[in-house]
Simulated assay, not measured.
Amino acid sequence: METLASWLRRLGLDQYAPLLESHGIDLHSLPLLSEKDLVELGVRLGHRKLLLKAISTLNNDGRAAPPLSQPARDAERRQLTILFCDLVGSTQLTQQLDAEMLRNIMHAYQRTCADIVSRYAGHVAQYIGDGIVVYFGFPQAHEDDAERAVRAALDIVSAVGKIAGPTPLQVHIGIATGSVVVGDNGASDGSIWNSAVGETPNLGARLTALAGPDQIMVSLCTHRLLGNTFITEDLGEQMLLRACRASAPACRRVRTHKRARMVR
């Protein structure tokens, strides 16, 4: 059965899933929303129009017809820059906080990341527990997707640390660039129509695992595309990734202080 999150994902508006769900909105209550409601929720004008058009196609029982604004895509080969973001210490948070407080913090974290990703024209592909997977270069490609990804990562580190909670929140971020196959994966419900397949997602995930709290790790390919825009540290042989080809083992750490962004 389709969920609100999967329906929004097919519209390319999945960044609003945490926001709507935090207000108790699902596919059954969605048709009751007016444009005024969406304004009060903070949904942008263009996104409101897309949502209202798609809401009009919902059946009375809450089942969603395929959204017109996100046609099915055949799988295609693309160069993507993929950003992985994981929350530091989520297990400890689970043990320390009651369920309602934890839920509020997680929703604030997801909304914060999604809003930043949207500003840089990225696409939130998946929410996996406390992790977020973001594509830069799909569905829409830009010449500076690698730079957009790093700028988004720097803003995420800064913004997540300001989220109200028992202790300041921190993240691990890994960014990798490379060729993937992305598009329709054959799922009948369209819930993961845009999953990327290839070495690049694996590399990005491993870079995230190597990153310390509030650190951003980028692959060698990503670093080459960045030029001299950011200050980075060469981590050399200490960060060889055993599971990746010898041709792409190196990674660099982006410094997350103000001097790291030479051009805004």
Rank of each mutant, 00 (worst) to 15 (best):
Q126S: 13
D115W: 04
L68I: 08
R111C: 14
L93G: 08
R78A: 03
S90L: 03
T94P: 09
F136T: 08
Q70G: 15
T94K: 10
Q126M: 11
M106N: 01
G122V: 09
I132N: 00
M106T: 13
D130W: 04
Y135P: 02
Q96H: 12
T81V: 10
D115P: 01
D98R: 12
D74H: 11
M101H: 04
H107W: 00
S118H: 15
R111L: 04
T112L: 06
Q110I: 05
H107R: 03
Y120C: 03
H123Q: 14
Q140N: 13
S69F: 12
I116S: 08
Q126E: 10
P66W: 15
A75G: 14
R119E: 08
G122N: 03
I82T: 09
P66Y: 15
R73C: 08
T81P: 14
R111I: 08
V134K: 02
E76F: 05
S90I: 01
R73N: 13
R78C: 02
V124I: 13
I128W: 02
P66N: 09
F138G: 00
T91F: 11
I105W: 00
H123C: 14
G137K: 06
Y127F: 14
Q95Y: 07
G89Q: 06
R77E: 15
L68C: 06
Q70P: 12
S90A: 07
D98K: 09
V88L: 04
F84K: 05
T94R: 11
A141Y: 09
A125G: 11
R77S: 14
I116P: 05
L68H: 10
G137P: 04
D130S: 09
L87S: 08
C113G: 09
I82W: 09
G89P: 00
G89A: 10
F138T: 06
A99I: 11
D115T: 11
R73T: 15
E76K: 14
R103C: 01
R73W: 07
Y120L: 07
C113V: 15
S118E: 13
D74Q: 14
T94L: 12
P139W: 11
A75F: 07
L102F: 08
I132Y: 06
Q70R: 14
L80H: 06
L102W: 02
S118A: 14
D86Q: 09
Q126T: 09
L87D: 02
I132E: 01
I132G: 00
A75T: 03
G131H: 00
R111Q: 15
M106W: 02
G137H: 04
T112K: 10
Q79T: 12
R111N: 15
A72Q: 12
V117G: 06
Q95A: 10
A141C: 07
M101S: 09
P139A: 09
Q79N: 10
L93E: 07
R77N: 13
D86H: 08
M101I: 05
Y127H: 03
F136C: 06
A72G: 13
Q92S: 13
Q96F: 00
A114P: 02
L87F: 01
A121V: 12
L97T: 12
A75P: 03
G131P: 03
Y120W: 11
T81I: 03
A121I: 13
V117I: 15
Q95V: 02
L87R: 01
G89C: 04
A108R: 07
T94I: 04
I132A: 02
L80T: 01
S90N: 04
D130N: 10
A99Y: 06
Q140A: 13
E76C: 14
Q95C: 08
V88F: 07
L80M: 07
